[in-house]
Nucleic acid binder design. Structure first.
Lengths: 104, 104
DNA sequence: TATCCACATAAGTAGTTGCTTATATTGAGA
DNA sequence: TCTCAATATAAGCAACTACTTATGTGGATA
C-alpha cells in the first residue's frame, strides 16, 4: 500500500483515534460505536478505509467482526519519515536511547 | 504544533512533494512553480500551509522569499508513530542497523 | 518616480470527504 | 422458521479542499 493512502487515512482524527483504540485491543464495530459518538455506518466506513490501506485486520467470529490494528501497515509512513531523520541528530539520539533500553 | 495539523498538511501529495524538494535545497516560489505544474498562487498557498504547521521556514531576501524544510517540524508525527514501533521488532532491528551506520 | 517582478491574498468553483438515514445481508437463538 | 442483533452498503448532503483567475503589496531598477 502506498504512503499516499496511509497519509490520507490517518489525516482524519476519528480514524486515527480508532487505530489507536484498535492497537490497544481488539474490538467490534458496536464497541467502537459506543466509544465514538458517531453512527454505526460511520464506524464501518472508517474501518473499511483503515482496512483498505492495511492498517486494520478483521477476524470474523460468527456474526461479529473483531478488528485490531496492524502496526506493520505503518511501514510506508515510517519509510517516508526515515528519509528525514538524518536531518535530525538530536531526535536520533533520543531514539537511540529508546533502542538501548529495549535491548535485553 | 499538534499532530492533527501535520497529518493534514502531509496528506496532500503535492504538499508532501514540496516538503521533499525543500528538504533537498532552499527554493523560491517561482522555482517551485516551475517544478510543479500548478499556478503561482497554488504554490504560495501550499507553502503557507506548510509554514503554518512548522514544516517549512522562510528566509526573506529582498523581494525574494527563500523557503526550506524544517525537519524538526515532523516531531509530532514521529512522536505519534513511535508509540507503535514497540509493536514492531523487525522494523526496529532494521532501524538499529541504520543507526549503527550513522555512529562514526 | 514609474514600472517590472516576486509573491501574497481574495473570491469563486468543482471535486472530495465524513456524516447521516434507509436498506440489505447474514448468523444465532426462540 | 421467524425474529433480532451485528454489520455492510447505498444514497444524499453539507462542509472542506485544492485549484483557478483577479488583484494587492512591496522591493529593485531604469
Amino acid at each position: 500500500m502506498q504512503e499516499e493512502q496511509i497519509f490520507r487515512a490517518l489525516a482524519d482524527p476519528t480514524r486515527r483515534a480508532m487505530f489507536e483504540a484498535l492497537a490497544r485491543s481488539e474490538r467490534t464495530v458496536s464497541e467502537l460505536r459506543r466509544r465514538f459518538s458517531i453512527s454505526q455506518p460511520a464506524v464501518s466506513q472508517h474501518i473499511a478505509t483503515l482496512r483498505r490501506v492495511g492498517l486494520v485486520r478483521e477476524r470474523r467470529q460468527g456474526r461479529f467482526s473483531r478488528y485490531r490494528a496492524e502496526p506493520t501497515g505503518l511501514s510506508p509512513l515510517i519509510g517516508w519519515i526515515d528519509r528525514y531523520r538524518t536531518f535530525w541528530p538530536e531526535r536520533l539520539e533520543r531514539l537511540q536511547g529508546v533502542l538501548k533500553d529495549l535491548e535485553p
